[in-house]
Nucleic acid binder design. Structure first.
Lengths: 233, 233
DNA sequence: GAAGCTATTACAGGTTCATGACATGGCGTG
DNA sequence: CACGCCATGTCATGAACCTGTAATAGCTTC
């Protein structure tokens, strides 16, 4: 639908968000980073705009007046292949699996730091523009973001929700180091500050399933003193 | 929220402070250092301004008429990631932890010397903006700030946390001389005054790993009597 | 040559992370 | 409704690895 971006690294973004404060803040942030931005305050408006504005990516709030984000997502998917990044407020008890099944390419938890949102937008565009398929293969590991399945050496691996969310989040931006705090915020929706080793435990369980040699992790790497990163780097 | 600064080291500052004397003094001081400054006399006004002015950092007084600094801080955080430096009068028995939990990035006690405030602003911006441009190459040395990896001549170098933090900090502003005291504060979070030779030791260890000839350091240079500087000559 | 500053090295205490066990609670099933 | 399974969060343990400190040697400057 959208053609190549005007400039490398620059995207046409359609922002669908009803809260004017959040909307304006994100518009400013994205424009400040040289993206072209159009915005809508409701799902209807967003869908209408999309027929005229060739967006590369739609940033879609979940809680909208009228038809909600899920439905908007499905309708966009019904006609176009525009990438979709979902935006959910912390505590919405947002069902990630449901969101991604509705056709979203990624999701971000509010309040979101604009750098983070922009990083996810870039990552989504990188993925969709290079491969044109949401399936990615890293070594022996295959992650399918459409069907939410993971397999190693062709054999399907069943992952519990939290481990899947963690893997999807990390692998969305390979190489990027995420602190435990960041992961707690964006994967768990937690906002407590207590340094818990919760992330470690989940990483550990994930490794035991996806790594060939869990003791020498290839995919989910520890960055001592900082956090974790998805390899292979 | 804001995109890259107009010029290196220059920032868009939103100052929220009700006392006109303090406000004007700080405006003068910051403008004198080439920052772009907008100001507000109340929290409401500040929040409103922020939807139009793409600030890099908000300098926020704690005691404000109407909604107080903490609340303003939380509301800013709810929508943006603009850095926040809190300003509190001595004796306000300001709860640092509370402030930082509300989302502040740093705090400064009034009366504040403009140089100090400016230094904290710079420090805060360095921290948040170092995310933006991930990979930099200096001679044979490559520093990737996203994956937190360092390589020399293409070969990966493993660095322990403190050495990595030191390198990231120094290389963020090549050529800038940092005193040991500055480094202790910003890299180590220490605020003790005991001049320990801790920095020297860490520099030494870092050199042994990244320098081709550790005895003739090319990247981490000693500035006798002052401190250290990063620079591929 | 002396004083002051920095490099170099060694070492012990401390921190961080992996690992596995355990408790809790939700969810589906019988 | 009761049961059991599984996912998840918490905790204790141990090992590997840093890091701060101190002691000594080397270099610069006056």
């Amino acid at each position: 639908m959208s053609g190549p971006p005007i400039l490398e690294g620059m995207a046409r973004v359609l922002l669908v968000e009803d809260d004017p404060n959040v909307r304006n803040a994100l518009i400013l942030a994205l424009k400040g980073r040289d993206h072209e931005v159009e915005s809508a305050a409701s799902g209807e408006e967003g869908l209408e705009l999309l027929t005229r504005f060739a967006a590369d990516v739609v940033v879609l709030d979940l809680m909208l007046p009228g038809i909600d984000g899920f439905e908007v997502c499905r309708r966009i998917r019904a006609t176009t292949s525009t990438s979709i990044v979902m935006l959910s407020a912390r505590g919405d008890d947002f069902d990630v699996v449901g969101g991604l099944e509705a056709g979203a390419d990624d999701y971000v938890v509010k309040p979101v730091r604009p750098q983070v949102l922009e990083a996810r937008i870039r990552a989504v565009l990188r993925r969709t523009e290079s491969v044109a398929s949401p399936v990615e293969t890293y070594g022996t590991l295959r992650v399918d973001r459409a069907s939410l399945t993971v397999s190693r050496n062709g054999r399907r691996i069943a992952l519990p929700p939290m481990e899947l969310r963690l893997l999807l989040h990390l692998s969305a931006i390979p190489g990027q180091v995420f602190s435990r705090q960041q992961l707690l915020e964006s994967v768990w929706d937690h906002d407590y500050l207590g340094d818990s080793r919760l992330v470690d435990a989940c990483v550990q369980r994930l490794r035991s399933k996806i790594e060939d040699v869990p003791a020498e992790p290839k995919y989910v790497q520890t960055v001592r003193g900082f956090g974790y990163r998805f390899g292979p780097v």
